[in-house]
Simulated scan of single mutants.
Amino acid sequence: MPGDGDDRSRMPEWIGTWAGVIAPVSVLSALLFYFGYVSARAQYDYFGVDVDAVGLDTQHYVMRSPQPLLVPLIVLTLLGAGLLIGHAAIRDRIGTAGSRAVTAASAAGLVVLAAGTLLLAGYPVAGRWSYYPLVTPLLLAAGGGLTGYTGYLRRLSAPEARTIARRAASVLIYVLVAASVFWATATVAQFSGRGLAMNQARNLGDLPRVILDTKERLHLRDPTVQETALPAEEGQTFRYRYRRLRLLIVGGDRLFLVPEIWSPSNSTLVVPLDGSVRVQFQFQPDPP
């Protein structure tokens, strides 16, 4: 029937439309997952926990990704707006004086790019520097971006200079800038996770209070945790009680507990929720 033919003829168009929507969403979800994972890994590594051992799901990583991405997104948005405004002003003033400015800017871009390349090549020596994973990609992105942009301005003033080699070089420069921005953003996510962990360590008292009863003595070395022997009673299987513990995170069927006061000798206690322990969560000491 005519209606069926019309539907069949439109099917490729529908598929193309949905593919154009799903592909960017999939890439965005993958990026959110990655940056959330990097942040979480740095955060829980501070407490001696491998985030893969926690068993968090994809949704958890995606939900925590806005925090480490907030600052890079704001910076990139403001930078992009400034570059567009600057480009509109520069494009109308390309001339003899503008050509000299473009040449100077191109030289500056090459110098910055060379500095980033030297840092990249000198990783065995400079890799221990705390800010190496942030400074290096920023130099590469700034130098590559400036070099690529000045090349674009030259092509505007001399369209005949467009060759395959120049186009290939421009593509490689843009790939370098994109990879460097990705690297820098991942570093910011790592710093964000580390900073969040240090803030938690300074305020462990804000985490949920936990009282832990066990059947066997844990022999904890943390001086903050208080151990009390429970009285022996008929039918009582739990022998020891531990106080001044805080809940760091719940992963799967396990609790990750830390002492309520940070100390270099502290450790994270992993408690399975399988009946071998008894857990109580205390109210906040703030009367309603």
Rank of each mutant, 00 (worst) to 15 (best):
A89Q: 11
N203D: 11
G86K: 05
H219L: 13
A19Y: 11
Y149A: 10
Y152R: 12
P68F: 06
D253P: 00
G145E: 08
V188I: 15
L134Y: 07
I22T: 14
L83N: 12
A40G: 09
L257K: 00
V279C: 06
M198E: 04
P159A: 12
I261L: 08
R64I: 13
V54W: 01
L156W: 09
G20V: 06
T228G: 02
T17V: 08
D92Q: 11
V102A: 09
L110C: 05
L84R: 15
R209W: 01
A161D: 15
A53M: 04
A232M: 12
V181C: 11
G80H: 04
T224F: 00
A107V: 12
M63W: 03
A179C: 10
Y61C: 02
A168F: 14
L172A: 15
E13N: 07
L248T: 02
V112A: 12
R167I: 14
G252N: 13
A101M: 11
D253Y: 07
V112P: 07
Y46H: 05
L28N: 02
L31N: 02
V27M: 06
L207W: 01
I173V: 15
S65D: 07
L248S: 04
N266Y: 03
G251T: 05
R244L: 02
L196H: 13
H60N: 05
L76P: 00
A229L: 13
F256H: 01
P133S: 06
F33V: 01
V270D: 08
G145R: 05
R244D: 04
P285V: 01
P68G: 03
T58E: 13
R241P: 12
A186Y: 03
L273E: 10
G20T: 11
R244A: 02
L110A: 12
S106V: 00
D7H: 07
F47N: 00
Y131R: 08
P259A: 02
T237K: 14
L78A: 15
L153V: 11
P2F: 04
P24E: 05
R194N: 13
L70C: 08
I173Q: 14
D7M: 06
A197K: 00
A104T: 06
G16E: 10
F182A: 14
S170P: 03
Q43M: 06
G20D: 03
Q226G: 01
L212R: 09
L79E: 10
L110S: 07
D6P: 03
D253K: 05
L83W: 13
F182Y: 12
A229R: 15
L207T: 01
S29V: 07
H60A: 06
P159I: 14
I74S: 10
A108K: 02
D7W: 05
A114I: 13
L56E: 05
Q43D: 01
V71P: 02
R162D: 14
S265E: 10
T136K: 04
E260Q: 04
I211C: 00
P264L: 03
Y152Q: 12
A23P: 07
V271T: 05
A101Q: 08
P223R: 03
E216V: 13
R278C: 08
R244I: 00
A201Y: 00
V277A: 13
T103N: 15
L257F: 02
P259E: 00
S39H: 00
A197C: 00
L220P: 01
A232L: 15
L110D: 01
V171T: 14
S263H: 09
P288K: 03
F191Y: 09
V270R: 14
V25W: 09
G148E: 13
